[in-house]
Design a protein around this nucleic acid. Structure first.
Ligand SMILES: [Mn+2]
Ligand SMILES: [Mn+2]
Ligand SMILES: [Zn+2]
Ligand SMILES: [Zn+2]
Lengths: 136, 136
DNA sequence: TTCATAAATAGAAATAATTTCTATTTATAA
DNA sequence: TTATAAATAGAAATTATTTCTATTTATGAA
């Protein structure tokens, strides 16, 4: 777990636990989006004791702290991937629909407007779907 | 159910059934995104007999035919809203986070590129979240 | 280093959204 | 009018996610 992730957890008064380290190291190693189940299966190899609810809770904590983001994929499972950006700047991500590989998408062209059609704009979410070099 | 929706269903060889009419009329009337459960509750008033699985299946058929689109909201329920565009042109939507009202977002500024970082770009999805005039 | 404490955890159980299955009904084209 | 594929209801199954509680642990303060 790198120093930026530690800082992001400390900022929210979250503890640095072995399970949390292991989860983030798995993301580092796999370099793609992962489901809670995949993560839990992996944790069981190292820890023998490992609860599903902890995985869910930790994933949402990581999202809250800007370490992971949610990925939309086919099916009704959740997926998460490393944000890979510690600057805090607004950005989006591109996901490989085949293997789930995730990268930062380098620009956001969303117009700098405060409102449209009477709506006050709060935020926008975008996901770019593609096929990565390896899967092409 | 307007003529465009009928055409979109016919194009896929889907039948025009009373339940399908009623679902789309509910969307017309409510002018906001709806969950399967809300739709089913409404259908039961008119039809007495009404199955939950039919609602789910029809909602996905409507998405497939470009009549509805999926809305992301807090919680683990699905929501759908009327696409309100029969031109077939690419566009996005703005959703009121309070009441679920949905409108077409008039422009897409996504760059006209075919690839980025080695990924072949397939598509992108975007949702703009805001607060509508009535909810402000 | 020790200790007090809030935070994190495991495991079991509950929840609830969604899907599957099958017998029956119905919209549609011929 | 009729044959047929499509749609449906209702019950049951599935399964991802959440809740609950007793126990353990990371951390900051003494
Ligand atoms: Mn953006
Ligand atoms: Mn767009
Ligand atoms: Zn790939
Ligand atoms: Zn609103």
């Amino acid at each position: 777990m790198n120093v930026e992730c530690i800082q992001k957890l400390r900022k929210g008064h979250f503890k640095i636990t072995p399970k949390r380290r292991a989860i983030l190291e798995l993301f580092d190693k796999k370099d793609k989006c992962l489901s809670p189940e995949i993560i839990w299966t992996h944790l069981k190899k190292t820890f023998k004791q490992s609860g599903f609810p902890s995985v869910y809770r930790n994933l949402e904590i990581f999202v809250k702290q800007g370490i992971l983001f949610r990925v939309e994929r086919q099916g009704r499972k959740r997926y998460y991937a490393l944000c890979h950006d510690h600057s805090g700047h607004h950005h989006h991500h591109i996901i490989c629909v085949e293997c789930g590989k995730a990268d930062v998408f380098p620009e956001c062209s969303f117009p700098d407007i405060k409102s449209v059609k009477g709506y006050k704009i709060l935020n926008h979410s975008m996901q770019i779907n593609g096929i990565c070099k390896d899967c092409q």
